[in-house]
Design a protein around this nucleic acid. Structure first.
Lengths: 127, 127
DNA sequence: ACATCAGGTATCGTCTAGGATACTGCAAGC
DNA sequence: GCTTGCAGTATCCTAGACGATACCTGATGT
């Protein structure tokens, strides 16, 4: 029995699963830590690697991940200045914990998509 | 190198990680599937077990998870009617893929919280 | 007759993550 | 002098997830 149920707001804040989940939910957080798995990357490289994230949102999420201790931000005051982001040990650890989910995603994505198609077909006009 | 980067919107939709991630992100989805791990539950039991979710939101998320094939909704037309939700094999599989993350959360939650405190202390008034 | 539980819908409001775009300061390259 | 790349800020806006509340249908209890 996993401790996911709560009876008060205070309890919800202390629930480890909910706490970490909230770090990791959102469209970009997991993608960012995965992008940093192999090596540290500079801001621009990270942005290019992810592809379709805006500068503002990437910055925002990087700040959040830094705040939670998953990565570090290092400024090398060149010139030109170069800012690089690297996973902390905690962040690398998180990536390990995330890998099963990643592999699973690769393996089962099509099942999910066809389930969705089936559901939509069944629930469109016919009730 | 994980396939997380994309160069077009179409590509983003085909990225397995992003696709599954979007199923699972949101405040409640993961909590719900975890709550169903041990046995099927009826709507009311599920709601009581989670504790602080409203009826509307729970219904909404259950529909979404059903649509994606993670759980089934079964109506037993009593009377009284009883609606029970159960994980599909796909859903049980997802739970397995999620477990490392859950265990990790339990183990590292405090590190994250103290990282956050440290960050906030360092970034509050002093820049 | 009235309240209660079950499993929802319907409405409304809020809040925030994310997207779009413009702008900055600094340097290097042509 | 102009553009380009880097690493951002500053604004504004939208969509949708979430919360609160009221209501509904049918059974069951007292």
């Amino acid at each position: 029995m996993l401790p996911i149920g709560v009876e008060s707001k205070a309890e919800a804040l202390n629930c480890p699963i909910r706490s970490v989940l909230s770090n990791v939910s959102g469209k970009w957080r997991i993608i960012i830590v995965l992008a940093l798995e192999d090596e540290p990357k500079r801001f621009g490289a990270l942005k290019r690697c992810i592809g379709d994230v805006t500068q503002r949102v990437l910055t925002e999420n990087l700040r959040g991940l830094e705040r939670d201790g998953y990565l570090t931000r290092t400024v090398d005051p060149g010139p030109p200045v170069a800012v690089s982001y690297a996973l902390t040990p905690l962040g690398q650890d998180l990536v390990e914990a995330l890998k099963p989910l990643v592999f699973w995603s690769n393996a089962h994505m099509e099942e999910v998509q066809s389930a969705r198609l089936g559901y939509d077909r069944a629930h469109r006009t016919a009730g």
